[in-house]
Design a protein around this nucleic acid. Structure first.
Length: 446
DNA sequence: TCTGGGGTCCTAGGACCC
DNA sequence: TCTGGGGTCCTAGGACCC
């Protein structure tokens, strides 16, 4: 048995924890760059606001309905997520953190400890609410896909917030009530294919032959889906790495993570070489810091530069350049140099770019880095480079983002004694404070 | 003027190797 | 007439997830 615990309207719920006046009111949270709606309270959903809807299109409606709007505050959400996971970890032998707002719990053998799994699920829910203020729903079933289904049902019913699908009769009834496009693993493309064949519910999907799913829904992916829907667990269990002991699988010594990225849209389109270089160098530093946080080094630096994705035209909007590092590194300076080299290859004079990004791949653990056979000992191997990066990370995490940076990333301009946002920086005009992670922004009571 | 970001997995096809 | 078999590695593209 697996339980899937999913936080309700997670980002909105985080905002509400620190401002209870938002309770009962329509609230939305916007994506990076204040682009579109990515979290909506129930009241906002009731107004017909859709997930992913561009903000600028619904802005009049939001104002008219007095919807509270927030820029996203990932510092806050990430910290709240960590707290939720901490609570959940006490309830099961194993936990798999699936995303920022949901986690699977391993309930194998749990019926011995907790004969009434439904009641146990309710206890999990109550404890998370009590310790973090975040409301959740819990779905319990023999496979991850069915646990997802149970969770969805729990959310829809709005009753106890817990649904247990522990017998074929129960999950078949749930499948019959579930639109086929709500099944985990059925996305837009597959849903259209299925609707065209008059397959409209989860039950009808499960009733198709296993071989049909294998042939038409992505090969083994479709076959696994079929089995999961029939109560046979097929999806891998990827337990959360312990905080201080991130062990990889035996057959994958580099660990599960295969890439680390930092890509952002600009607040305004940019065409000047200098501004683009500063942006790319800044993103390279962010990506490198993330890499170090995961204790990995990278062989490949991919730079991407994108024009507007929404002007109809045959040209693909994003172009990429891949730079192979001579040795794997997580050093901001090495990665910045490679990134600027990639930028020089990509940039076309006079073109206005809307976004840029860095993807680091070919990851290894630092100790395992392959040395180039004919290269001099890599600079990264020198302990003072590692110390330098550790000092940089320490200062930046203590005193704020990018306080210490490479010259390539540019110097912030100041006006009236206050640092001004860079020309390319994304918009985030309505961000709530970093209530729990920023010394200058701690929650004030009273 | 205005539309997010970060991931994973699978498959097919080509280059290359013995 | 007739042209093996088994691999690996890489890339691109497609699908999915939150």
């Amino acid at each position: 048995m697996y339980a899937l615990v999913d936080c309700n309207n997670f980002y909105v719920s985080c905002e509400r924890v620190f401002d209870p006046r938002l309770e009962g009111r329509p609230v939305v949270v916007l994506s990076n760059n204040d682009g579109c709606l990515i979290s909506r309270s129930d009241e906002a959903k009731a107004l017909g606001l859709k997930m992913g809807e561009p903000w600028h299109l619904v802005r009049p409606l939001l104002e008219q309905q007095q919807v509270r709007v927030f820029s996203s505050n990932y510092g806050l959400y990430g910290d709240m997520s960590r707290r939720v996971v901490q609570v959940l970890a006490g309830f099961a032998a194993g936990i798999e953190v699936y995303s920022i707002d949901e986690a699977f719990l391993d309930f194998h053998g749990m019926n011995l400890l907790a004969p009434d799994l439904h009641a146990y699920g309710a206890e999990v829910r109550a404890r998370v609410q009590q310790h973090t203020g975040i409301p959740t729903c819990v779905g319990i079933a023999p496979t991850k896909t069915l646990a997802k289904l149970a969770n969805r049902q729990a959310r829809k019913e709005g009753g106890s917030g817990v649904v247990l699908l522990d017998t074929p009769a129960r999950w078949q009834a749930a499948l019959a009530a579930a639109p086929v496009d709500s099944i985990w693993g059925v996305g837009r493309r597959y849903a259209r294919k299925l609707f065209d064949l008059n397959v409209t519910t989860g039950a009808e999907l499960a009733a198709l032959p296993e071989a049909w799913l294998r042939r038409h829904l992505g090969g083994v992916v479709g076959q696994r889906l079929w089995r999961e829907l029939h109560g046979q667990p097929c999806l891998e269990w990827n337990p959360a790495p312990a905080d201080d002991d991130d062990q990889g699988h035996e057959d994958d010594p580099s660990g599960r993570r295969h890439s680390v990225a930092y890509t952002r849209s600009f607040g305004r389109p940019q065409h000047e070489a200098a501004a683009l270089a500063e942006a790319v160098a800044t993103f390279a530093a962010k990506a490198a810091a993330k890499l170090r946080q995961h204790e990995r080094v990278a062989h490949l630096v991919t730079v991407l530069l994108g024009t507007s994705r929404f002007t109809p035209g045959a040209e693909p909007s994003t172009r990429t350049a891949v730079i192979h590092l001579p040795f794997a590194s997580s050093d901001t300076v090495h990665i910045t140099q490679a990134a600027l080299q990639g930028l020089a290859q990509l940039r076309r004079a006079g073109v206005a770019y809307h976004r840029a990004g860095i993807v680091l791949s070919g990851l290894e653990r630092p100790g395992q880095a392959q040395l180039g056979l004919f290269k001099a000992a890599p600079e990264m191997a020198r302990p003072e480079r590692t110390q330098l990066m550790a000092a940089l990370d320490g200062l930046n995490s203590r005193f704020g983002r990018q306080l210490v940076r490479t010259a390539a990333a540019g110097v912030p301009t100041r006006a009236h004694g206050h640092p001004q946002p860079d020309a390319w920086a994304g918009r985030a005009a309505m961000r709530s404070p970093l209530y729990t992670t920023g010394w200058d922004e701690l929650w004030q009571v009273g």
